[in-house]
Amino acid sequence: MASSKTCFVTIGATASFAALIKAVLSPRFLTALKEQRYDELLVQYGQDGKELFETAVKGVQSVGGIKIHGFGIDENGLGRYMRQARGKDGQEGVVVAHAGSGTILEALRIQVPLIVVPNSDLLDNHQVELAEALSEQEYVVHGHLDNLPKALQDAEQLRTRQKQWPPPNSGVHRQSKSQGLKGVLDEEMGFLD
């Protein structure tokens, strides 16, 4: 376990995201994983994704060489799996996730390369904007369902220049009179000292 290169895929706990489960369990993606020397694929498929996951796994048994397993939801959070994917000593993996902000923040804190795949089925799609903005600043790779192998390559690039999280806010407050949340609360409270 300790010496395997892991790709951890998570669709989150609230909505289902069948398209992402299908995309990561396609022969094309698995081949790409093998090319990048991955040996483990771990999928968090959500409350009602079990059936879909098992059918899809059967469909790609011919590819082989990669251990595939999955689970529905873990109430203790995903940190454990993200740290497993982060790996060490030349076995560093990747996380592929839906664009939920909680999941993204956790992966950024854990400092594991992250591919964000927004769910285009969701109505209010501010998640795409978040994924775009973060990939522009090179915090994450903005992945598209139809081209995940490319995202996997980009993630290797991202690994070499993993950015610090949270970003230091020095410089920002120079343009503003307040310093961070504390500054604003102090001003509103009337604390002058």
Partner: peptide, 9 residues
């Protein structure tokens, strides 16, 4: 509207 940097972590 004010931007004081990212506030979450």
């Amino acid at each position: 509207v004010e931007y004081l940097g990212v506030l979450v972590q």
